[in-house]
Design a protein around this nucleic acid. Sequence first.
RNA 1: GCCUCCGUGGUCUAGUGGCCUAGGACACCGCCCUCUCAAGGCGGCAACACGGGUUCGAAUCCCGUCGGAGGUGCCA
Length: 480
Amino acid sequence: MTVRTRFAPSPTGYLHLGGLRTALYTYLFARKMGGVFILRIEDTDQEREVPGAIDRIYASIREAGLTYDEGPNVGGDYGPYIQTQRRHLYAPKAWELVERGGAYPCFCTKEWLEDARKACEARGETFKYDKHCLGISKEEAKRRIDAGEPYVIRQNVPLTGKASFDDVLFGHIEVDCSTLDDSVLMKADGLPTYNFANVVDDHLMGITHVLRGSEYLSSSPKYNLLYESFGWEKPVYVHLPVVMRDASHKLSKRFGDPSFEDLLQRGFLREAIVNFIALLGWSPGDDREFFTLPELEEVFDLKGLNKSPSIFDMDKLTWMNSEYVRRMPFEDYLAMATPWFEAAGVAHLDTRRLAELMQGRTEVLDRIPPMVDFLATMPDFDVALYTHKKMKTDPQVAAQALALAKSVLVTISDWREEVIHESLMAAIAASGMKNGQVLWPLRIAISGRESTPGGAIEIAYLLGKEETLRRLERSIAVLP
RNA sequence: GCCUCCGUGGUCUAGUGGCCUAGGACACCGCCCUCUCAAGGCGGCAACACGGGUUCGAAUCCCGUCGGAGGUGCCA
């Protein structure tokens, strides 16, 4: 039997990292099993739908490298893959369920229910619909519906007994039917709720394995009841724990947690994000940490899934990203870094050399500008920077060092790193000073920064002779 | 409140009764290298939530407590 999995997001905004992880695992499982990965859009809540969200979801999934075999804008034999385009499919199924006794039409108004719920809450009890409309006869129901009265269709959950389901990760989960409410399956607007649509579509689309967030863990027994009423074969369930921002809050936009898009925009590499996300709640079983998507498709196994929620750790993502940056081909790095060099106003310099210096120091691309912008404009700095205990320098030493450096640098006509290096080193050796005593102040004098990507020689080279001397003279002039 | 689930260092995790004086990674700290930073090398800090059982033996099995999460919508 061919494995068929699906990722079924709602177009209510961007694809958050938890969603991305669910999509990733669903995709990986399908690939690992040589199965089919399907994308389905669950847009039955018209009110919550955000314009443009569908396109953003497509873009994120594509950007992550998760190719789907069936779905909107790809096609497939089980389409359409957008629920509002399947709307005609649900009502007949719902009425079939009514015939089978698994559901019933309900005419109670939203307002009435809300009041009842509030009253219940006030008494400190859990609200449960009392099946009031279950007693309405078929004939009366038909009459009222024909007369245009609004109605919904509710699931008819048995009053007694147990409902259960089996989850690959969490095992057998069982609840008393008495604790379950008759949830709405078909809304008054004629569209199904998630509770119904997911069951119908998973069945109709031949989904064999359902991977989804653990927020559905407690309603899954009810879905199984539906499968049983229909006499349909149940899928294999795998509920995934939540991705948290800290111990008690899940990742959320409101707290400023980044989406996949945000991360990409900030200069995280998609390969690094995917790799990191894969390891958030899943382990290959050994100590290996670096995986390409094809490698993940190879080694992914549901056995490595973790049951407890995991906290998204930006520090570790940042580290992993810096590893990916370091390992990428130089030309690729140069191409990716160039826009950031432009943003920092240093694109007129020898960017190839700058990129060589920067590649090993770039954790995230958006950190490039603040690291290199001093090359564009000389920052103001405190002369205290000349004082460095280990380098054995202070403003007095700096005065000598800078004078020496200047005397050497003005004579250089062939402004290359090797030449600058040799000339400076020869002069330092002749002067009897330590390397650091000259090089540290020089670097400070031409960069204005305590730390820079590269030493005095690299910085001088990048700046060019004219600018180096200009900065040097200016710094000498302001020495106390 | 009720129902369900979860609980290894600050974080991601390995571990499925003896291989565990609990392994790896991130972060943090120290040292080395070094013209700064980064990288690299070496070293360090730091966990089985708690309490009872079961067993010759428990992070691993059972019970309870505590803590956290999810659900309790004509949201998904």
